[in-house]
Design a protein around this nucleic acid. Structure first.
Lengths: 234, 234
DNA sequence: AAGTGGTCTAGACCACGGC
DNA sequence: CCGTGGTCTAGACCACTTT
């Protein structure tokens, strides 16, 4: 996303904030003029905000504030919460951590400039003392000023984010695919080489769109199962 | 999506089809001229195809073909609907079918008495002519009076349920786990023995709680990917 | 330096909703 | 009918990769 759009997004969010649920925004042609940008640029931003549930657009009618978000499909759960829900004890082993520039790929995913520092840590996650998953988490360092990675050795990341930094994860995006374990994963997870595994990639963000984490995990295929409640679209 | 983009999309897909994995597409400025559209319009289409995994774009370098995985959304979708959403053609090959008493396990899942007849069929599902998944569906026979299983050889189950029997799937429950393909699966899916695969089990029901289907599918791990939108519980 | 994708602009026309 | 969002255009400049 460009610089203009970043600023524009905040401006529009501010205006939305000043409106009630269901109220109409000014027409695009009017809004873009008052904000000093091209209509297409504004539309790009409005499109994203619509996607995120802040707005509803109706052709011929207008763009409206949608305060109430409906579609809670699948819930975001941290490993810790997930295990608690399964009535298992969870623990972690911090394998390594480092702070480094985001680089191109992570920068794009987390919406940071490539030079921005990122905290990355790799943890072995255990359930009832048994290895269950290997996880690599990357977080914008600026989000967690002064955090010692060691406290994440055995704590819920989401809890720390919330209680210590006031960061609440609001939504996310996750993909699952099948894989087989490589040598390192097999050893750490205690399974034979080339065992089935679930590769889970997750990106989450806060209500105001700030990217919180990019996580890539490999779950043991023989012990882990992913559950989804389905709903039929209307 | 506009008319121009629809046509454009097909044109670009055709060109992609003519290229190998990793090959570069012509530059945007060249391509849009040869296709007779504006660059932004072309970029819109390229963006979507990138989102869908057909392409990878690298600034300063070019746009490249990515024989990538397909990603699935979160709602209940039949394979047919899923593929249609991906704009791929879907087809099926009916491997076998039979009617028999539900038995203990299926009876419990579908909430039928064990003696109640169940229609079970096994289908190979293909996307754009390529094997993608193996699926075994079981349905209460009483739901589908007079259905000839052959019509399911190449039709959407959900569509038939709805249009012909007035049965609307309302909600469901799905689990995913990692597996490796056995001998039969490998042969039918055209992958090596013990390839990674996704084992998907699904049970769905109508609004009034009647169980509709119990399905067990094995998806190719190298071509299929599940996509889930996450939301944080309130 | 040349060429690529990424962003932004100003303006046109279309399709639809509500008056 | 007019005003709205939806699409498309031609062209400019920027950021990055490659040579």
């Amino acid at each position: 996303m460009g610089e203009t759009q970043e600023v524009l997004r905040q401006e529009v969010l501010a205006r939305i904030h000043g409106l009630l649920d269901g109220e109409r925004l000014p027409p695009e042609r009017e809004l873009c003029q008052s904000l000093g940008v091209a209509r297409e640029t504004l539309r790009q931003v409005l499109g994203e905000l619509t996607q995120e549930g802040y707005l509803v657009r109706r052709r011929g009618a207008g763009t409206f504030v949608a305060r109430s978000k409906i579609t809670q499909q699948t819930q975001i759960r941290s490993f810790t919460e997930d295990m608690r829900a399964r009535r298992m004890s969870s623990s972690s082993k911090l394998l390594w951590h480092r702070r480094e520039p985001a680089g191109a790929r992570l920068g794009a995913v987390l919406r940071l400039s490539p030079g921005e520092p990122v905290l990355t840590l790799r943890r072995l996650r255990l359930a009832d003392g048994e290895p269950m998953a290997l996880e690599t988490v990357s977080l914008p360092d600026a989000l967690l000023p002064g955090l010692e990675p060691e406290v994440l050795a055995d704590a819920s990341l989401y809890t720390i984010l919330d209680e210590r930094f006031g960061i609440e994860v609001w939504a996310g995006d996750q993909t699952l695919e099948a894989t087989v374990t490589d040598r390192e994963e097999s050893e750490l997870l205690g399974v034979p080489l080339l065992s089935p595994g679930l590769l889970v990639e997750r990106v989450t963000w806060t209500r105001d769109g700030r990217r919180v984490e990019a996580t890539k995990s490999t779950y043991r295929g023989d012990r882990y199962r992913f559950h989804i409640d389905l709903a039929r679209p209307a």
